[in-house]
Design a protein around this nucleic acid. Structure first.
Length: 862
RNA sequence: GGGCGGCUAGCUCAGUUGGAAGAGCGCCAGCUUGACAUGCUGGAGGUCGGGGGUUCGAAACCCUCGCCGCCCACCA
């Protein structure tokens, strides 16, 4: 924007328009350098703690971060103002598998691979990345105005944090919950690692279902169906449902595997679905989880038919070392040639992909580290039953509990190049030593020739410890004592099970208490066409672009207004723009009040008597309402309600009505008007500060008597003395009259100001004078003709057009029709005896009042 | 396969115990009104996804169907 447009006004020294860029960085730097974000573990105040969900150090702040960090910062700032000692702790996550993939992609662009670089060079590259990108992500939260305690910045690969991770591993190991065992796992052929069930991304595939004939040794044949014919090469059985009449006689017989010749026992197993395919299942225990279990039940042989890179491992067969898909084609061709392929049909199903590199997952047998979850699961279930964790919205508690109830052992080992190495050491004599610090010698035989297990831990293993590892656990630090359990956690619903559930379990296990009492799940922002926001689809919106164009406060206000409002929301830029206008509106409202002459009489706004003027009584009453509504919205995690209440108060009540009503008094330096205006501004800036920290701090600093920070100002408590329902009712009448006169004026084509209002019957004098003033008409004692109003017994005339031209008459006619229609509806309902009998009396009375008003209005118009 | 959420004005969304349908944007008309044209004023626009039911009364509660989206799940 051209700065010339915003030249200072001589009266106020405030530019005409709010320019976010001019103030944001300055305020953040001042808050930070004055230590306003730093928590004091020794404070006597009640504590409120939030550990920022550590963003993966894989890139940049996205929309999810913007929503989540805004939400948390709203709460952190609110709690500080409300008298709490707030710890809002930042950090980042090394995100082993995700980071490895990001860096591998960069290497590919550079024409190299991590294998070519070797481990040490790759590790150095990763360290450099963590330093650079970690710094970038920190700066992004500063731009967002997030009041994080940077003195306590944590990283999951920090030496202290690693010690926490090792301690947890050893503790689990010593409880006997960690074990190593071969099982079917989700194997990613690209990352050459196992991943957990939760890291598998299921995608719909259009595939082919092949029906293959297996001859039976004792005579006849059995036909099986499969989408992965290449796996038949390592089939070790055929299964049918024991209740299936078609196949019952075959159980116990032997099938001959085509192309291979292996003898396959035919077994009966309940797991087989009679209605799928032919009802007969080829059993491949080495490459399918269900087959593995069937195999276990019937002691079938397990053959591993695949190398880690998804090439076939079938020595002696022509398919050996072929990639799975090529092998599939060859197998199908050979089956067809030899007459074993009965038929093939299109088949739609879901196929697991690695959620980080999107490679198709191959289920295969692998020796892995497992963590038993039973005890922790039971403690977590008990904690929920005891109401220790409140979910917002509540329905997500069930999502969490359902998953928890079906929980199985967690595969915590990964075969990646980066991450926390498993603290397990082997000696040359085959002994195992598990210890937090690298041991000097074998615990059993004293051998000093030790090698560490090559596996690293699942990233989520370390994230699971976040709420207490960041506070120093296992040391009994002051922070840990002061701030654990923390108060709230908020995140995206997709990691409820991956992360939130595991924090609850480890928190209960190691700290004996749930890690936080509230969990808030924010919505997902979709692209404006309803698709997922993603960089690769080109549907992403970068929060920094928005901040650039609309300012941080507008983006935060928007984030607050959508984050908890529903499950998903489509991105609508016009809403962000709307909040930018709101910022500007507040800016100019402040400018108006500041331009009133003299200095405010009241040192503390809101301390003068406000009885004299109706508008003063009204706006202060509305202020109390708005103030309570904003507070309730934050307390209830319904930030959209807070924003709506503050917005409509500030714009539709304070600016549209109060400032218009009090403008002349302000210009005249009326102390009460100034007091009320400053009171409203002061309060609304306070309650908006958590949502729009920069603008509110700037405006507050410009209003008289504010040398300190708004950020440190107390949260306003509604004062019952200002609640004035009579004033609200009277002012409501003013608004009705003013709006009707305005409408009549426009219908008459009259100029914006001028004209007369005559009361045919007396009404409240204060209402009449205020209404006349706001409607720009003169209250007169005598009047000939004129246009009758429906809302009050009064007539109005305007300078030119005099209120009786055709447009005006048409409008009056339409109004009469509408009123009559309404009256007919009301009377109809009042004529219904069942309504009179069964509806609550106050509802009946309300309707009667309304009918009476309608009749009066119709009379006036006729 | 199970579960959850959504379907309200042209668009994006509010509507908390059932008691006269709302906002922002867009649209139309009028305003260089001494805070703001990032503004002000007036206005048009909705049988609240379809169909049943409960009730004096349903956008809201129940049933059912239809789309859209998400989560969970070892049916080849």
């Amino acid at each position: 924007m051209d700065m010339k447009e915003t030249e200072p006004d001589t009266n106020t020294a405030m530019p005409k328009a709010f320019d976010p860029k001019a103030i944001e960085a300055g305020w953040y730097a001042r808050w930070e350098s004055d230590g306003l974000f730093v928590a004091d573990a020794h404070s006597k105040k009640p504590k409120y703690a939030i550990c920022l969900p550590p963003p993966n150090v894989t890139g940049e702040l996205h929309m999810g971060h913007a929503l989540n960090h805004t939400m948390q910062d709203i709460i952190a700032r609110y709690r500080r103002m409300a008298g709490y000692e707030v710890l809002y702790l930042p950090g980042t996550d090394h995100a082993a598998i995700a980071t490895q993939n990001v860096i591998e992609k960069q290497l590919a662009v550079e024409g190299t691979t991590k294998e070519q670089m070797g481990r040490p060079a790759f590790a150095a590259r990763v360290d450099q990345w963590y330093r650079d990108v970690g710094a970038t992500m920190v700066s992004q939260d500063r731009i967002l105005g997030v009041s994080l305690d940077w003195s306590r910045l944590r990283f999951t690969m920090d030496p202290k944090y690693m010690r926490s991770v090792m301690t947890a591993f050893v503790a689990f190991y010593e409880r006997g919950w960690i074990y190593r065992a071969p099982r079917i796992v989700n194997w990613c052929p690209h990352d050459l690692s196992a991943i957990s069930d939760l890291e598998v991304d299921w995608q719909v595939h259009q595939d082919t279902l092949y029906y293959i004939k297996y001859p039976v040794q004792e005579g006849g044949e059995i036909i099986v169906a499969t989408v992965r014919p290449e796996t038949m090469l390592v089939d070790t059985g055929v299964a049918v449902n024991p209740t299936d009449e078609r196949y019952r006689s075959l159980i116990g017989k032997t099938a001959i595997l085509p192309l291979v010749g292996r003898k396959l026992p035919i077994v009966g197993d309940e797991a087989v679905d009679k209605n799928f395919g032919t009802g007969a299942l080829k059993v491949t225990p080495g490459h399918d989880a269900m087959d593995y279990e069937i195999g276990q039940r019937h002691s079938l042989e397990i053959i591993n038919g695949m190398h880690p890179d998804a090439r076939m491992n079938v020595p002696g067969l022509p398919y050996d070392r072929l990639p799975a898909l090529e092998a599939r084609e060859r197998v199908v061709a050979d089956l067809k040639a030899q007459g074993f392929l009965v038929k093939q049909e299109p088949y739609t199903h879901e196929v697991g992909h690695c959620d980080r590199c999107h490679t198709v997952i191959e289920p295969l047998i692998s020796d892995q580290w497992w963590l038993r979850m039973e005890t922790m699961r039971d403690k977590a279930l008990a904690a929920s039953a005891a109401g220790k964790v409140r979910w917002h919205p509540e329905r997500y508690e069930r999502t969490y509990l359902d998953w928890l109830r079906g929980l199985r052992d967690w595969n915590i080992g990964r075969q990646l190049w980066l991450g926390h190495r498993v603290p397990v050491y082997y000696c040359e004599n085959g002994h195992t030593t598990v210890s937090v610090e690298p041991p000097r010698e074998c615990a059993e035989c004293g051998s000093i020739k030790l090698t560490q297990d090559p596996d690293v831990l699942d990233t989520w293993f370390s994230s699971a410890l976040w709420p207490f590892a960041t506070l120093g656990w296992p040391e009994e630090t002051d922070d840990l004592k002061a701030f654990y359990p923390t108060s709230m956690n908020s995140t995206a619903r997709e990691i409820i099970n991956l992360w939130v559930s595991r924090m609850i379990m480890t928190g209960l296990e190691f700290m004996g208490e749930v890690p936080f009492s509230d969990v808030a799940i924010h919505c997902v922002v979709q692209a404006n066409d309803g698709r997922r926001m993603s960089k690769s689809l080109g549907t992403g919106v970068d929060p920094r672009d928005l901040i650039d164009r609309y300012g941080t406060d507008a983006v935060r206000a928007w984030a607050a207004s959508v984050a908890m409002s529903s499950q998903d929301v489509r991105f609508d830029e016009s809403r962000v723009e709307g909040y930018r206008r709101f910022c500007n509106k507040l800016w100019n409202a402040t400018r108006l009040v500041l331009s009133s002459p003299g200095s405010p009489t009241a040192v503390v706004p809101g301390t003068l008597e406000v009885h004299e003027h109706l508008e003063d009584r009204w706006i202060t009453s509305r202020l109390m309402y708005a103030c309570s509504a904003v507070t309730a919205g934050i307390e209830d995690f319904e930030f959209q309600d807070s924003m709506a209440a503050a917005y409509s108060f500030a714009w539709n009540e304070l600016c549209d009505w109060y400032l218009e009503a009090a403008k002349e008094r302000l210009r005249a330096g009326d102390p009460t008007a100034q007091d009320v205006a400053y009171f409203c501004l002061d309060t609304v800036l306070r309650v908006l500060h958590p949502f729009m920290p920069f603008l509110t701090e700037e405006l507050w600093s410009r209003t008289p008597g504010h040398l300190d920070y708004l950020m440190l100002a107390p949260w306003p408590e509604p004062d019952g003395r200002f609640v004035d329902l009579d004033a609200e009712e009277s002012f409501g009448e003013v608004m009705t009259i003013v709006e009707e006169v305005r409408a009549q004026r426009q219908a008459a084509g009259a100029p914006p100001r001028g004209g007369s209002l005559h009361l045919d019957q007396p009404i409240d004098r204060a209402v009449a004078t205020l209404a006349a003033r706001l409607a720009w008409v003169e209250l007169v004692d005598e009047m000939e003709g004129g246009t009758a109003l429906a809302s009050v017994p009064a007539r109005v005339t305007f300078p030119s057009g005099s209120g009786d031209n055709r447009a005006s008459e048409a409008k009056r006619e339409a109004e009469r029709t509408r009123l009559k229609l309404d009256l007919a509806k009301s009377e109809g309902q009042l004529a219904n005896p069942q309504f009179l009998e069964k509806a609550p009396p106050e509802i009946v009375r309300k309707l009667e009042d309304r009918a009476a008003e309608l009749r009066a209005a119709i009379d006036r118009l006729e």
